[in-house]
Nucleic acid binder design. Structure first.
Lengths: 207, 207
DNA sequence: GGAGAGTTTGACCAATTGGTCAGGATCACG
DNA sequence: CGTGATCCTGACCAATTGGTCAAACTCTCC
């Protein structure tokens, strides 16, 4: 009845699990957990609903698998923030990487946005745990840079929040951005890159 | 059967409509349109479900009434951006007003955030219409300031987007902010104000 | 204090939703 | 090529959901 939990995966399992998670990303990111239905996911995956439930035992299980599959990808840019190199350049490079992700993985961004806006019911433990640990670590690094006078004196936590906010905005609030910047809707990522580079470079360069 | 559409409102209508919209704000902002149920709203309003539908003829009607009631409040700060006064101060003041709103009206912020993240299905016409018009107007004002050399050369649209993003972040992604800044969770708005003041003041002050 | 407007409710309904199940189809492999 | 494991489906189910309706209750105002 249910999929066997043996170690190795069949070719068919490999393919269908991938198809299901991609369909789930499409649907969950556009409607949130509660707004998404198994029928929608099944249709997007071109599978029958009972067949979905053969691979994942519940809607929650699909959601959980999706989030945990994407978490590493999503946090990778922050992990690469490194103590080597010029601090201002390092931070601006991080901003650019995050902006690239908003352009290339908007569904992933909206998946997390939906989850957090609604109180992060399924991932609050991740936020309080591994995410907080990672942010604490990088905040210390930034604090060291401010203490050494290599970047302007700013609160490292709020710096990180502002970078998340400004970059993910282009994925999460895409509908609003497009509604306002109607005509040339593809160059606007370049304009955003220029603006954010100026914003952070001038604000972080020590006097 | 349905509430009479006479011009004047009864004392009872006045009160119950207010109670319903407040309950709806609570529920919609926490769960999004699709995630919210009439039962939840009815419970939050301490009314029976059929009684809700006596005052509003559908779930959509409640949502619509709520959005249109809140729209003016929500856009008020941008409207006050004025050509009088020192440009940098004027923009920083706008940032502070938006940050105050994120602190004092987080439910309203999340209501719009939920709506936009999911593609703005109910308000896309407002975004393309009145909102775009207002933003275009204020973008012209900012452009004038950059042309006159009174603030640094930045793209006015992306400046506005970044202000929305950084300030609303504290309401919309509150769950994440709280998860990461665990201990002193009330002073963090002051820290945010200090950070954002520095960010925009240094980035906008002309060389 | 009574009549008509305005308000509230319990019972009900059809559609949707997440999930189950028995059995049939298909695949891998000796 | 057959047999056991894997894969897939139609039929079904209970719970939830948005919404209706007739009847009862309550308020207002003459």
């Amino acid at each position: 009845m249910a999929m066997p939990e043996t170690a190795a995966r069949t070719r068919i399992q490999e393919k269908n699990i991938r198809v299901i998670l991609d369909a789930a990303l499409e649907v969950f990111s556009g409607a949130g957990f509660r707004g998404a239905t198994l029928d929608q996911i099944a249709r997007a995956a071109s599978l029958s609903k009972p067949n979905l439930l053969y691979y994942f035992k519940s809607k929650e299980a699909i959601h959980r698998a999706l989030l945990s599959e994407l978490l590493d990808t999503w946090l990778a840019p922050l992990r690469t923030l490194d103590s080597g190199g010029e601090p201002v350049d390092e931070i601006v490079r991080y901003v650019m990487r995050k902006l690239d992700m908003a352009r290339e993985l908007p569904r992933e961004s909206r998946l997390f946005a939906n989850e957090i806006v609604q109180g992060a019911p399924h991932i609050f433990d991740i936020i309080e745990g591994p995410l907080k640990a990672l942010v604490d670590e990088k905040a210390s690094l930034i604090r060291k840079w401010t203490d050494e006078g290599r970047i302007a004196e700013v609160d490292p936590y709020h710096l990180i929040f502002s970078i998340w906010a400004t970059t993910q905005h282009y994925a999460d609030f895409d509908a609003q951005v497009r509604g306002i910047l109607r005509p040339e809707h593809d160059r606007h990522f370049d304009d955003a890159a220029r603006f954010l580079t100026h914003l952070y470079r001038t604000a972080l360069t020590p006097d």
